[in-house]
Amino acid sequence: MRIVVQEAPFDFAAEAQGFSRGLSGMGAVVTFSGLVRDDDGRLAAMEIEHYPGMTEKAIRAIAEEAQARWSLGDLLVIHRHGLLAPGETIMMVATAARHRAEAFEAAEFLMDYLKSRAPFWKKELTADGAEWVAAKDEDEAALDRW
């Protein structure tokens, strides 16, 4: 299991390839990456604030829960903070399992929990000013299925 919280960009393809190497007995790797989305062409940048210390602790707890629920060969979470431009990669998860169902489910579980339980806050910066992204009720509701 590897958890990385960093400001610097990372190479998604290289990380995905590195993750897939050296796995033993695993038949499935699922990767997900989240990008800075510009809905209407007005986004100048996204600023991501986090809670150093708690961030790593919270992600580790979520990852350990995923490992307890599914039989995973390995698991990776990378999440950035700081100032990001539209289209930049914010974060990624990767899961490895014997079969794809487990790898997909574990990746979805990680994403649902990272969204609402890891202490990150997104702020959208546009020409008109800055606005904190509000948490959505559906993101909270997504946790109920687990």
């Binding site: 974060m91 990272l114 969204k115 609402s116 890891a118 990150f120 948490a135 909270e140």
Partner: peptide, 10 residues
Amino acid sequence: LAFFPPMTGG
């Protein structure tokens, strides 16, 4: 102790 709005990670 820390206070913050609902989180928006991912």
